[in-house]
Design a protein around this nucleic acid. Structure first.
Lengths: 220, 220
DNA sequence: CCATGTGAAGGTATTCACAGCC
DNA sequence: GGCTGTGAATACCTTCACATGG
């Protein structure tokens, strides 16, 4: 399986395994079986083994996976083996929360710059990061920042992306609720929070009203 | 196709169409073709037609889709045709940002209650929503709130979910970076923001360092 | 004996191409 | 002529079962 392209769905699950391994690493044990990891992260054991088989022999039959070695392997595959510097554009409510969020560090991701257009915000510091004028986005290239988070209002999102791409950014995580266009070589992942909440009701059993209706029907 | 189960991937795309239709509705036109909607939301036209075919005949050949009627149809399918009341647990940086976020309204979702354990926060108001004591989560049932957003630290997430389920909540959007267990009938969607950012590097072309390495190899 | 890694089977989603309707 | 809705083909992903190796 070593020569096979890694399926997108596997790439989506790798960070989950990594997260699980990090937490497991705190325990004393040096190895972990696909079975243990499975119950910890909530994904079936055979799925984990299959996923890992796409890019390396990390396990030892009869023993399991060396936690440290596997974590390294996944990081390398995801290209998270170097510290990645990221920029944030848009320091509103969500942007500020992201600056304060400690979770990125786990993956070797570091928000080292923040931009906004509000003169009131420019110059101030949020969580140790100075807020710069969004007009200076073009400085990103020489600062070796190729990853960006877009947390600006929808109407400003496309222009922001254009500036980021011009500044040499190669990957963008977008929180604005709209489609963004960029050259094929640029990877854009859009994460619309409201949309995730919006698909919950579909999976929920019919609400109280429905139950009430059933009761009434029984009564009648 | 009307009798077929709607694929999960279709359910995931429906909110995108809905979002696109809402914005399109501002224009004068009454109808929209799968082609126009496709270029607007960034999904292929045949994919849209196929998705819509799973749950109704909304289009008119030669004309397109009536924007209003289609939006209604999608809302009904996603069970977003009634206003849904949601509760937020954990009013930290992210939680506060979510309270301020206007995007939920588009889908008929309304955060009407917020909870925290910090005495400093309890009693205060954020964006018009009073922050209550998290110990009072059990009041959700009689307040007709069956949707919840979990934005508490990882260590508190599972206990929060347990309380929510006990309080009659049927759907949970979780921002804590961990697996959560709940009865099968409860739908839990976990959204780990850092994880999304973490899979960006995989799709990015090799960084400057790599390019340099190649150059050196050429030199040697 | 235990746990991995993987062919093969089965299932689901994507993509195509076009018949049918306005 | 234009556009929808959908069977059929294709591609992709999941799931199983077991051969293989420590």
């Amino acid at each position: 399986m070593r020569y096979h392209k890694i399926p997108d769905e596997t790439v989506r699950r790798l960070p989950i395994y990594l997260r699980g391994l990090m937490v497991s690493a705190d325990q004393e044990r040096e190895h972990i079986s696909s079975q243990s990891l499975a119950s910890f992260v909530g994904i079936e054991a055979w799925q984990i083994r299959k996923d890992l088989s796409y890019f390396g022999d990390f396990g030892t039959p009869g023993v399991g996976y060396n936690i440290y070695r596997l974590a390294r392997g996944i990081k390398k595959t995801l290209r998270l083996d170097v510290i990645r510097r990221a920029a944030l554009v848009g320091v509103g409510d969500l942007g500020s929360a992201l600056l304060a969020y400690p979770g990125f560090r786990v993956y070797g991701l570091d928000i080292v710059a923040a931009f906004d257009i509000d003169p009131q915000k420019i110059g101030s510091t949020v969580n140790g990061v100075a807020i710069e004028n969004a007009a200076q986005l073009d400085t990103l290239r020489r600062r070796d920042i190729s990853l960006a988070i877009v947390a600006v209002p929808r109407d400003a999102a496309q222009a922001t992306v254009d500036s980021l791409v011009a500044a040499g950014v190669k990957g963008i995580l977008n929180f604005a609720p709209c489609k963004l266009v960029a050259a094929r070589r640029i990877k854009v992942i859009t994460l619309d929070i409201a949309m995730e909440l919006a698909r919950l009701p579909y999976y929920m059993p019919r609400a109280e009203q429905a139950a009430e209706t059933v009761l009434k029907m029984d009564d009648g």
